[in-house]
Amino acid sequence: MGGHHGEPYKVPHPSIYKVENVPQLLEVKEALGRQGLKDPWLRNEAWRYEPKAFGTHASRLNTMLFRGLGVGFCAFLVTIGVEYALGIGKGQGGHGHGDHGHDDDKKHH
């Protein structure tokens, strides 16, 4: 759909990912070793902890929380400006304040 831009994605060689380079996975490996177990697929999770490829936890959180905030705020300002320019919403917030039926009271007194 979107067309082809630049080189196709290059898959890195799996040997660059090592459990020993990731403290969290090293803890898992050692805990399994204490129980006499081994996880041959543990290395497959190492890419998740590569900050260059996947980002840090904080950067992913920032992206999730604040993506689109600037566009959304600009849309909010445009909406407020259009409503103000067209006079939309004026007189709807009074709920009983104003001249609604008060002229009748003056005529009868």
Rank of each mutant, 00 (worst) to 15 (best):
1 M>K: 04
3 G>T: 07
4 H>G: 06
5 H>Y: 10
5 H>C: 07
5 H>Q: 11
9 Y>S: 12
9 Y>T: 13
10 K>P: 03
12 P>M: 04
12 P>F: 07
14 P>D: 09
15 S>T: 06
16 I>D: 01
17 Y>T: 01
17 Y>V: 01
18 K>A: 02
19 V>I: 08
23 P>A: 05
25 L>P: 08
25 L>D: 03
27 E>R: 15
30 E>F: 04
31 A>Q: 12
32 L>W: 04
33 G>E: 15
33 G>L: 14
35 Q>A: 12
38 K>T: 12
38 K>C: 07
40 P>Y: 01
40 P>F: 01
44 N>H: 14
44 N>I: 00
45 E>Q: 14
46 A>Y: 08
47 W>E: 09
49 Y>L: 05
49 Y>W: 14
51 P>V: 10
52 K>I: 08
52 K>T: 12
54 F>W: 08
54 F>K: 13
57 H>N: 10
58 A>C: 03
59 S>V: 03
59 S>F: 05
59 S>D: 13
59 S>W: 05
60 R>N: 14
60 R>W: 05
61 L>H: 06
61 L>T: 12
63 T>W: 09
64 M>L: 15
64 M>F: 15
65 L>D: 05
66 F>T: 13
67 R>H: 12
69 L>F: 14
70 G>V: 03
71 V>E: 15
71 V>Q: 15
72 G>W: 08
74 C>H: 06
74 C>E: 15
75 A>C: 14
75 A>H: 10
76 F>W: 12
77 L>V: 13
77 L>R: 10
78 V>L: 15
80 I>P: 00
82 V>W: 02
82 V>L: 12
82 V>R: 04
85 A>L: 12
88 I>N: 03
88 I>T: 04
88 I>A: 04
93 G>V: 07
93 G>N: 11
94 G>L: 13
95 H>S: 09
95 H>E: 10
98 G>E: 01
99 D>Q: 02
99 D>P: 00
101 G>T: 00
101 G>E: 04
101 G>Q: 02
103 D>T: 02
104 D>V: 02
106 K>N: 03
109 H>N: 04
